[in-house]
């Protein structure tokens, strides 16, 4: 009864259906409008509209200049993708990058989180250093590493020669076999710190009692990690893998800055290929179709993430 006397608009906990509307007070959705309007406006116009626009353009043929020239072509663009060998290469590169970068980031981040959780002095300093690359623009990172890897000057080749391993000197980004693995390595360099912090936050949340109990039972440090810590990290590992995968699909800047997709499409990914199609080759419809494929992959992963979260919240 008590809740019924509180005006409906003020009660946050009770369900809307259960509460009678109090005369003279606006319904809640009306009160919510001014609070929601600005965020929803910009979200709808500048995020949702381009998102739907990408879908709409993907079934058209358009050079991008005159809106009157847009021609509806159904699924022709997607059929054309099937015959586009660069598209298939790009898709493969995206998946190779995703798998490589996710496995490396997760492994490095987890190993370091465990190592830094050993309460050794200066652990905090190292943590801070490892997270640092995350805040630096990928454009800066891309240019710096292009210079580091420059075959003529750079740091790597002269270093290899100086230590007598000159035969290992390579063309690096100019080498089609090495370019993509290098892009992966740089992405790991830039981003593993973030996931390391996610693991650390989980490690801190493990009650000390559990570790103490293991040690009382005669476990050593390794056994503690193997049988107590790691099993409790499972759900966090799964989440990091998902987050890092979604992040991996955002790949564009490093490739654009370092290789522009080259040499000879060796680092071409969906986003750079779509960018080329839309802005250089003026195939707006076709470029959009490539982006739709990218979006589809993203949403499959996002769907897994969202459904996983509901499971987690129930526990």
């Amino acid at each position: 009864m008590a809740t019924e006397t509180i005006p409906a608009t003020r009660s946050a906990a009770a369900g809307a259906a259960a509460r009678p509307r109090v005369a003279g007070l606006a319904p809640e959705w009306l009160l919510a409008i001014p609070f929601l309007a600005p965020a929803l406006f910009f979200y709808a116009v500048f995020l949702l509209a381009p998102l739907l626009g990408t879908l709409a353009l993907s079934v058209t043929d358009w050079s991008g200049f005159n809106i009157a020239d847009i021609e509806f072509v159904g699924l022709d663009n997607f059929r054309a993708l099937g015959a586009d060998s660069v598209f298939w290469q790009s898709l493969q590169h995206n998946l190779f990058f995703l798998v490589g970068s996710v496995i490396l980031k997760t492994t490095v981040a987890l190993a370091l989180a465990l190592a830094l959780d050993q309460n050794l002095p200066f652990s905090n300093v190292f943590r801070g250093v490892y997270l640092m690359p995350t805040v630096i623009s990928l454009v800066v990172v891309g240019i710096v590493f292009t210079l580091v890897l420059s075959p003529s000057l750079g740091l790597i080749n002269p270093f290899l020669e100086a230590i007598g391993l000159g035969q290992l000197a390579g063309a690096w980004l100019g080498d089609p076999d090495l370019a993509l693995p290098i892009v992966i390595a740089i992405d790991v360099w830039h981003g593993f710190g973030l996931y390391m912090f996610l693991f650390i936050s989980r490690l801190i949340a493990i009650p000390q009692d559990l570790h103490d109990a293991a040690f009382v039972d005669g476990a050593n440090g390794w056994q503690d990690i193997l049988h107590i810590t790691l099993p409790l990290m499972k759900s966090m590992v799964a989440m990091v893998i998902l987050l890092a995968s979604i992040e991996a699909l955002k790949l564009f800047s490093i490739v654009y800055v370092m290789t522009k997709g080259g040499p000879n499409h060796a680092t071409e990914v969906l986003s750079t290929w779509a960018y080329f199609q839309a802005f250089t080759a003026n195939n707006v419809g076709y470029g959009s179709a490539i982006l739709v494929v990218l979006l589809a992959i993203t949403f499959v992963l996002a769907y897994i993430q969202v459904t996983r979260f509901q499971v987690q919240e129930e526990i």
């Binding site: 509209a49 381009p50 969202v306």
Partner: peptide
């Protein structure tokens, strides 16, 4: 709220072509 959360997942580069036209 769920529709808004979608914004966390969308890769920005997936919006550039239609965004440019917009």
């Amino acid at each position: 709220f769920m529709i808004l959360l979608l914004g966390l997942m969308v890769p920005p580069q997936a919006l550039i072509i239609s965004g440019f036209k917009l």
